[in-house]
Every structure is written in C-alpha cells, then in structure tokens.
C-alpha cells in the first residue's frame, strides 16, 4: 500500500442561489487503496476536526449501483476510469502531487443543492411521464406465457442497467438526457410486455425530456461517461421509435394512443 499527497480544488456553494467558488484543500496521507469517496470522508473528518463545514456530496451504496454519487472529477463525469462510478473509483488512479478538481454536475435541469450535491428530480419526471409498463398489481399472467428471445431480453437488460446517476447529462456538451431516456425507452419498448404502450411511452418521455434538457448532437460523450457503458445505439433506437410514434397508425397496430 502506498500513500500519496494530493490537493483538492472543490466547488463550495451554500445553496441553490448562492454564488459558489473553488476551495483549495490539501489532502495529504491518502492511501492508494482508498476509494475516492473514502478520501472525501477522510477530508471531511479533518474539516470537522478543524471546526469547518464538511463538503456536501451525494453518495450511498458505494457499490456503483444506486446512482446517488456524482462528481465531475478533473473535467470528467465520475472521473478518469471508464465504466466506473465515482464510488468505485480508487485513489490508485491518481499520483502523488496531483491537483484534483471536483465540480458538481452542471445543467439547468440539475440545480445545485449545496456544494457538490445536485437535484436530479428531472429524471424522475421523465419516468413519471411514461417510463413504465402499466401492469397494476394482481392479474398478471404466468411469467412464462410469453417467451422472450434471449437476445431481446439481453438487449433490454443492457438498456435497463442504467443507474440514473446523471453522468450522461453532466458529460454532454449540450446537457442532453438522451442516453438516460433512451435507455428506459429501449428497455421497455424492446420487450413484448411493453408493446401496448410503445408509442405513447416514447412520445411522453421524449416530450418531458425536451422540456427539461438540451438536445442530442451525437458527440457520444455520454456513452464514455456512463458508469454502465450504456451504448448510444439506444439513442438511435429511441429516435426511430419517436418518428414511428408520430407517423404510425397506432389504432391499427393496437398500440396505445
């Protein structure tokens, strides 16, 4: 185990409407086996010992699955390791003497709550608009009644792996939420169970997304930032689903209008 000394440049902001600034905080004696967030825990413990406010940042499961953690680290969403959420990033990826710049996600739809914490409720709005299959409790048919080809189930699972962290929006030069939205649209639209609401779903979700976020110009930055490496192929799929939602005769296809 190795120890390194780093310097943090951390964004501090008191509240949603306050002006923010970078604080420079030295972080000596960091063990390289620490996770990035354990490093921040330690820095916070030291701040409290000095009588200062701890840095506010979102985090929870620390297993890369809940999607609560965020952080723009050195200009990259979730930091330099590909396919890795901040909580799974380890200090061995940094070198002694590094200055590490930490900023919150920035997007109009993700207002800053405090310091590094942002409000991602806009994602919930998109799901509330249509990111579901209407199947009220009770009355579901036997789970094996509709065979689903393995390739389809696998593709749906690839899309469903999204953890809703918002890195796609944060990384996107346009603050677009296409990858998040398309992942859910694709997950549900690929499955036979999702067919009844297929067009209504994509229309409602895209419309809500567009009220809140920027538009996609196919940079591909979101896929690189995604801790689950979700493919932008799903964005293409959503685009074609959206076009169909506008042009197909839904009644004749028995798909919800």
């Amino acid at each position: 185990m190795k120890e390194i000394n780093v310097t943090l440049k951390v964004w501090r902001q008191d509240g949603p409407n306050a002006a923010g600034h970078f604080d420079t905080i030295p972080a000596p004696g960091i063990k390289d086996e620490m996770s990035f967030l354990e490093m921040l825990d330690l820095v916070n413990e030291r701040l409290i010992a000095d009588g200062k406010d701890a840095i506010v940042f979102d985090h929870d499961c620390r297993e890369g699955i809940c999607g609560t953690c965020s952080l723009m680290i050195d200009g990259q969403a979730h930091g330099p390791q590909k396919g890795t959420a901040t909580c799974q990033l380890h200090m061995r990826k940094f070198a002694d003497g590094d200055e590490i710049v930490i900023e919150p996600w920035r997007a109009t739809a993700f207002p800053i709550v405090k310091d590094l914490m942002v409000d991602r409720a806009a994602f919930d709005r998109i799901i509330e608009a249509g990111g579901f299959i209407t199947a009220e409790t009770g009355g579901a048919p036997d789970a094996n009644i509709t065979p689903i080809p393995k390739t389809v189930a696998d593709a749906a699972m690839d899309a469903a792996a999204c953890i809703g962290c918002g890195a796609c929006v944060a990384a996107c030069p346009n603050s677009a939420a296409q990858l998040f939205t398309s992942a859910k649209v694709s997950h549900l639209n690929l499955l036979p169970q999702g067919q009844a609401e297929r067009y209504k779903r994509v229309e409602a979700m895209v419309d809500t997304m567009e009220e809140l976020f920027g538009s996609c110009t196919n940079h591909g930055e979101c896929e690189e930032a995604c801790p689950k490496s979700i493919s932008i192929d799903f964005i293409a799929l959503m685009n074609s689903e959206y076009l169909k939602s506008k042009f197909k005769n839904r009644k004749r296809l028995s798909q919800h209008d």
Partner: peptide, 22 residues
C-alpha cells in the same frame, strides 16, 4: 409465484434461456 408474474408483466428483464423461457 405471483411476484415473478407481476414483475415480468412490469418489464423486469429476468434472465432467459435460448428458447425464451425464464
């Protein structure tokens, strides 16, 4: 048994065999 039916109906992508069954 109802849970599996319910969750499948809601679109949970449970692992499948090549024949399409769970």
């Amino acid at each position: 048994v109802n849970i599996i039916d319910q969750m499948t109906a809601q679109g949970v992508p449970f692992a499948r065999e090549y024949g399409g069954l769970l």
